[in-house]
Write a protein that binds this DNA or RNA. Structure first.
Lengths: 187, 187
DNA sequence: ATAAAAATATACAGATTTGTATATTTATTG
DNA sequence: CAATAAATATACAAATCTGTATATTTTTAT
C-alpha cells in the first residue's frame, strides 16, 4: 500500500476517534495528513469508502493484536476466556484508547440500512463469534449464550471507558466474567 | 411549557434518535415540527442547548417510567434488582426503542470537555447510582461493584439492541444478572 | 375593537460540507 | 535526458449548516 494512502488512513482513524466521524471533514484529514483532497479521492472513492476502510483496518488490527497476544502467551483452552479479559484490559487502558470504533460508528449512523452501520454490526457479530469459539474450546455447553453475555460485558466496559477514562470498568467486567464462566462450566 | 416548544423537543428527540444528532439540521427539525427557525431559536438559545434539553428530557422520562413501573408492580426489595431487568426488557423491546440516548450522544461527541458528552457521562453515572441504591435495598455487600457490573450488562444490551433490532440481548443480560446477583448475595 | 404578544415567511450572512475541474510541479522510470 | 506517473495547488460548484435580521401575519388579552 502506498505510504500516502496509509498516512491518510492513519490520520482519519485518529481524527474519527478523537473528534467523531461526522464532525471530521476531509479537508481536515488532508491538512493533518499533509496532502490534498485530490490525492485522498484518488485512493478513496468517497468519504464513506474511507470510513468503511478505517473501520475494517481498525477491526483487523484489534483481531491481529489479540491473536498475537494469545500466541505469545499460550494457555490452556480452559483459561483462554479468562485471559482474554486481561488482554482486553490492556487494550482498553492503553493511553491511545478512545472507544471501540464499531460501537461509536453505529451510533453516528443509526440507520440499519446504512453501509457503515451494517459493517459495524457485522464486526460486532464477528467478535461475538470469536468469543463463542473460545467458549467452545473451553468446553462450555451454551457457547452462544455465554459469548453473548461476555460480549455485553466487554462492549459495555469499552463504552464506559470511552465515556469516562479511568473508570475501571474492565476490572469489574473481568470479575463478572469469572463468575459467569465458572457458572457456565458447572452446567 | 408552550405546546410549540414541546413539539420541537419531541420532534428533535425522534430525529436525533433515527438520524443521529450531527446529521440532523435545525431546518429539518422545524420543518417536521411545522414551525420556523425563529420560533426554535426563541425557545432554545442554540442547537447545543436543544440537544442538552432533549437528553435531559429523555433521561427524565426513562427514570419516571421506571419509577412508575416499580410503584405499580414491586414489593420486596430483594426482588427489585431482578424485576428491573424485566422492565428494561420491556423498554428496549418497545418498537420505538432506537438506543439509549446518552450512549449514542457520547459517541457523537467524544471530547470529554464537550457539554453534551459531560451530560451523557453524568446520566450514565446517575443510572449506576440508582442501580447501587437498588443493590443496597437488596442487602448486597459490594453495592458499587455489582451496580457497575449490572450497568455493563444493561448498557451493553442496549447497545447491542440498537445495533441489531431483535437481537435478544436483554434476555441474556437478564440471565447473566441473575447469576451475578445470586453470587453477590452469597458473599 | 384595540393593543400587545406570538408566530410566521423570507431572505440572508458566513462558514462548512463533499466532490470535481484544471493546471502546475515533483518523482519515478525507461 | 525524456517520457510517464504521481502529487500538489487552487479554485470552484452545489449543497448544507447554524444563526440572525426584517417584515408580515396570526393569536391572545384587555
Amino acid at each position: 500500500m502506498s505510504p500516502l494512502r496509509a498516512k491518510i488512513l492513519s490520520v482519519a482513524t485518529d481524527l474519527f476517534q478523537t473528534r467523531g466521524i461526522n464532525s471530521t471533514g476531509v479537508d481536515t484529514i488532508v491538512a493533518v495528513a499533509g496532502t490534498t483532497k485530490m490525492t485522498l479521492y484518488k485512493y478513496f472513492h468517497s468519504k464513506e469508502d474511507l470510513i468503511l476502510e478505517v473501520l475494517q483496518q481498525g477491526h483487523q488490527d484489534f483481531q491481529s493484536w489479540l491473536q498475537q497476544k494469545f500466541e505469545t502467551n499460550t494457555k490452556k483452552p480452559a483459561e483462554k476466556l479468562q485471559k482474554l479479559f486481561d488482554f482486553i484490559e490492556e487494550w482498553v487502558t492503553s493511553p491511545d484508547f478512545r472507544g471501540m470504533a464499531f460501537l461509536k460508528a453505529s451510533a453516528e449512523f443509526p440507520n440499519e440500512e446504512n453501509p457503515v452501520h451494517r459493517l459495524s454490526a457485522e464486526q460486532s457479530r464477528q467478535f461475538r463469534q470469536y468469543l463463542a469459539s473460545l467458549a467452545t474450546e473451553a468446553g462450555i455447553q451454551d457457547t452462544e449464550g455465554l459469548a453473548l453475555q461476555l460480549s455485553l460485558l466487554i462492549e459495555g466496559a469499552m463504552q464506559a471507558e470511552q465515556m469516562k477514562r479511568g473508570s475501571g470498568a474492565v476490572k469489574y467486567a473481568k470479575k463478572a466474567a469469572k463468575v459467569l464462566i465458572d457458572n457456565a462450566l458447572k452446567s
